[in-house]
């Protein structure tokens, strides 16, 4: 066929490329001018913002908390989404599709509404706290808002549906006959899980896990609302640095740190997956 497909690419590419480079380079450049506060920046090009980001205890703590809650949320997401994905993928009645649409709907609904629900559930005079106190489990109302656990749970709301959908497609690629073979040879379900299903879904788990980790690192809404102004992750801090402190170039620096972290995770995941594929090739 004599269609020039590459010509088709050009307008779209120019549009995306211009938006991408223009926006990303401008804030990166701005991040190299020292922030004087209240929207003013000095004219000298230096690394003072970066120096501050990596020496100031507050920024370092924020970075550490971001990594920590993201890692915990990633583990939680994988642990919960794998059984769900497995059960749905191995279901052959139309219930599988119904369960799956339940997941899809909940991923599509904006996270703000879900967080709203969480806030109501954990409100001081809410149903949960009243029953907890009536049963004598706690004396004071328990809340997850403003705690790191709360942020982890909020992040899981953000990623769980995505995790299920990703792992669902992973489990679907594992032929059921392999499980039957293991079963016929007398392997228990648990053994079959550890020796057959898990190794086969490992590349998918790693890819999905790193993607979930990446999403958590950049997640803003749930972290901001459940952090309740007490727990800060990097995206929340970036937004506050601009909205409350009006420090554009400092926020730019923090955003650059976040961006580089995310890019590094992406590169890492590509490398790990490539290595795994090679290892699999050797085994086969």
């Amino acid at each position: 066929m004599t269609v020039r497909w590459d010509l088709l690419l050009i307008p779209s590419f120019i549009f995306t490329f211009v938006l991408l480079t223009l926006s990303q380079t401008l804030f990166l450049e701005g991040s190299f001018y020292r922030d004087l506060g209240l929207g003013r920046t000095s004219d000298e090009f230096d690394f003072s913002n970066y120096l501050r980001a990596f020496t100031d205890g507050f920024y370092l703590t924020t970075l550490w908390i971001t990594v920590k809650v993201s890692a915990l949320a990633m583990i939680g997401t994988l642990v919960f989404s794998f059984p769900v994905a497995y059960v749905i993928a191995r279901m052959r009645s139309r219930w599988g599709m119904i369960l799956l649409s339940g997941i899809v709907v909940s991923t599509f609904i904006t996270i703000v509404i879900k967080v709203f629900g969480i806030i109501i559930i954990f409100s001081a005079d809410g149903w949960l706290n009243r029953s907890l106190m009536a049963l004598g489990i706690t004396d004071a109302p328990y809340t997850i808002i403003g705690t790191q656990e709360g942020v982890v749970i909020g992040l899981m709301y953000f990623t769980l549906g995505f995790g299920v959908l990703t792992l669902y497609s992973v489990v679907q690629t594992i032929p059921y006959s392999l499980e039957e073979a293991a079963e016929i040879h007398g392997a228990s379900r648990i053994r079959m899980f550890w020796r057959v299903i898990l190794p086969l879904s490992m590349p998918g788990l790693v890819a999905g896990g790193l993607m979930v980790f990446n999403m958590c690192m950049g997640a803003f809404t749930s972290a901001a609302l459940l952090g309740g102004g007490k727990v800060f992750t990097l995206p929340v801090l970036i937004q506050r640095t601009i909205m409350m402190e009006v420090k554009y170039s400092m926020a730019g620096t923090l955003a650059a740190v976040l961006l580089v972290a995310v890019i590094l995770i992406n590169i890492l995941s590509i490398m790990v997956l490539r290595r795994m594929r090679v290892a699999r090739g050797v085994l086969a």
């Binding site: 995306t16 223009l22 990303q24 804030f27 950049g218 997640a219 803003f220 601009i242 955003a255």
Partner: peptide, 21 residues
């Protein structure tokens, strides 16, 4: 990669990038 990058860049970063642009 250019076409996929808006998905990889955290939305907060894109937000401040567009604001400054």
């Amino acid at each position: 990669i250019v076409f996929r990058s808006p998905l990889q860049i955290p939305a907060v970063v894109s937000g401040i990038a567009f604001l400054q642009m």
